[in-house]
Amino acid sequence: MSALVLSESLGTTVRQPLMRATGVSKSYGDTIGCLDVSFTLHPGEVIGVVGESGSGKSTLLNVLSAQLPPDAGTVEYDLRHRGMSDIFRLSEPDRRRLMRTDWGIVHQNPRDGLRMDVSAGGNVGERLMAIGARHYGEIRAEGLDWLAKVELDASRVDDKPKTFSGGMQQRLQIARNLVTRPRLIFMDEPTGGLDVSVQARLLDLLRGLVRELGIAAIVVTHDLAVVRLLADRLMVMRHGRVVEEGLTDQVLDDPHHPYTQLLVSSVLQV
């Protein structure tokens, strides 16, 4: 709703949304994962989802990225050839193709998103080969190009990710996801487990790439600094529900819900 108001107030034309979630709920038995979450994401927009551990952020992300079917509600995505379609009604091969071409998923733990015993170049090239690239020279050139974009040294192209530091693995994971020029990436705690200076560089890089390539993103994190830097809009989750949402600066500078106020005031100011 706020995005619509925003785009109208800026005098731009109303664009087609990229993804629309309506009443998404998922519970594990009696335990609520997420409850009645609805939002609309537009192309190039970055939405941050914050909340403490167990608030249902990761469940929501798993549902949105088609890794977990919801109990209720729909997730629609603007497919390139079919327009808005319910991603859980797609056939499995179509959904898998969507996930490895038009989407990217950056996992919190790079081990979940990388093939640790395949070289960095092979990791970046995998998606290209999956969509039919069969020219070694071109795949390698593209791989090197992407390593440079995520500030990895080209001389490491044939090294395996297990020899990389945590920050490098995370950047490699990003390169591997962006190589097919996705329109939407899902990020689960992209800076988790990294030290502060590495976090800062990664965020800088992510912000640059997202802006430069016009990629929409859904970023789940418990770190308010991450969303402050990356996200246009913010959803605050608690006990599986979205308790507050709005423009990032607005939510963080003028939190309305008591829980958001608590969250914002808990951040240590240095």
Binding site: V118, S119, G122, A130, Y136, D158
Partner: peptide
């Protein structure tokens, strides 16, 4: 390259064979 049997069956079922070329890519790069 893919230790999960459930996953390799799907890959055969949907003819997702990009991974096979990753193996050959690794050969050439090494």
């Amino acid at each position: 390259l893919e230790p999960r049997e459930t996953e390799t069956r799907k890959m055969h079922g949907y003819a997702e064979y990009g991974l096979m070329h990753v193996r050959l890519y690794e050969d050439i790069s090494r």
